[in-house]
Amino acid sequence: MKTTDLCDAFLEKLQVSEDLFQSFGKKKSFHGPIHTVQVYEDNVLVRQALETIPAGSVLVVDGGGSKKCALLGDRLAEIAVERGIQGVIVYGCVRDTKELAELDLGVMALGKSPVKSKKDGKGKRDVTVRFAGVEWIPGHYVYVDEDGIVLSAENLLKNKEI
């Protein structure tokens, strides 16, 4: 089911993200339960989350909207693919975009930067974050395709594909 169909059927149950993101991954449609990290120009917790969240999940990275460095590159994306993560949404930048485009992973981000992030390990995991006009709540569901990003407190697809 497409995000447009979800909006037609369930709009009163949805939050609709502002159209801020570009798609960088090979997978253009993905969905799953949300797991979050909140960091700023530091991707240590991004790696930890990708190494530990369950398969089928979507990692939402609140990078504070910084465009000074990348929070996800090809190495971390490869971990996500190996572990069966459906996608990563970054409120910040990614790098290694040629490689990301070839990986079977959904990747949405504000933009790209060739600069790597710091490795201080600062930030928070599994907290509600707010950006793009919506609240990203751990355990809620996110649905992404070429038309947009929508969020719901419940799984609206019950194992169907969008």
Rank of each mutant, 00 (worst) to 15 (best):
G111Q: 12
G121P: 00
P114Y: 07
G92C: 09
V115P: 01
D145Y: 03
W136N: 01
G148R: 03
A109T: 00
K122Q: 14
V61H: 10
L151M: 12
G63F: 06
D96T: 00
G133I: 00
V115S: 13
A80W: 01
H140T: 01
V115A: 14
I34E: 13
D145F: 02
L151D: 08
V39M: 13
Y141T: 00
E82Y: 08
V115I: 11
I85F: 08
L72Q: 07
P138C: 09
F131A: 04
L50S: 04
S57G: 10
R47H: 13
V115K: 13
R125Q: 15
Q38F: 08
H35Q: 12
A101P: 00
D145V: 00
R83M: 11
R75Q: 15
E135R: 07
I34D: 11
I53T: 00
E135H: 05
R83P: 00
P114S: 13
I89W: 05
V37Y: 06
Y40H: 14
E102D: 14
T97G: 06
L100V: 01
G123L: 09
V142G: 08
L50E: 04
E51D: 15
G111W: 10
G121R: 06
L151S: 08
H31I: 00
D147R: 05
E82S: 15
V144I: 09
G121F: 03
N43S: 14
G65Y: 06
L151R: 05
V129R: 07
G111T: 04
I89P: 01
R47K: 15
V90G: 11
A153N: 13
V129L: 12
S66E: 13
L105F: 04
T36Q: 09
L45C: 11
D96K: 06
P114M: 12
S57W: 05
G148P: 01
I149C: 10
V144Q: 09
L76C: 04
V107A: 12
V144L: 14
A80P: 01
K118M: 15
I79Q: 08
Y141D: 07
M108N: 07
R95V: 01
K122Y: 11
